[in-house]
Amino acid sequence: MGWVEGRFEENFITTTLEQAINWARESSMWPMTFGLACCAIEMMATGASRYDMDRFGAGAFRATPRQADLMIVAGTVNYKMASRVRRLYNQMPDPKFVIAMGACTCGGGPYYKYGYNVVKGVDLVVPVDVYVPGCPPRPEALLEGLMRIQDKVKGMRYLTKNQPIEVPIPARTGYVQLPPELDDPNPLKAMEKQLAFAKKTKEEAAPSKA
């Protein structure tokens, strides 16, 4: 911590603002109640008495996306549901995280071959931060996935200057249709366009100095 350490009385701690915010954020990661299929039962079991997700600050399951930080996509997503998943994701406030729970959301799972109606992986619809494989994953596995999300939060550096701009559109965007002004047959040019777009929106969103 440098020179400030130990210069104050007891019960004072010194930290950076960024670390303090990240600490608060990672220890109150509110997931959205978003059970789709079988994995939802394991998600409920994770939240219930034995596994008790609340120990890690993630026990407050919110019924509305507007109060949630974390979307646990628990179960098979099909084409009829895909647009809803996307809409719910868009409704969540930033910063938002997505756990793809179970084989179906990771890549179609057992429904890959004959599932005419199953989306072959939820990353075709929303960007995914952590994949938790298994059919269904055990609650321990989901807790592990939650901790990886917490690691990710711990490493966030959005207050520091000169950090690379996060691409707002997922890196694996080939599958979600882009608006024409951001799309280009050449992937490098497309990336440039998207970065320019991202920079512009970030500048517009920044609070004015006066």
């Binding site: 084409y79 009829k80 895909a82 005419y116 109606n117 072959k120 619809v125 599958y175 249709q177």
Partner: peptide
């Protein structure tokens, strides 16, 4: 009832061809 309203074809026919893409989401 089960598939979306704009779905084409009837999946349990034996000669049904699986869709390659649905509203911009690739099929496989």
């Amino acid at each position: 009832i089960l598939l979306s309203e704009d779905w084409a074809g009837h999946p349990l026919r034996k000669d049904y061809e699986f869709p390659l893409e649905y509203h911009g989401i690739r099929g496989r």
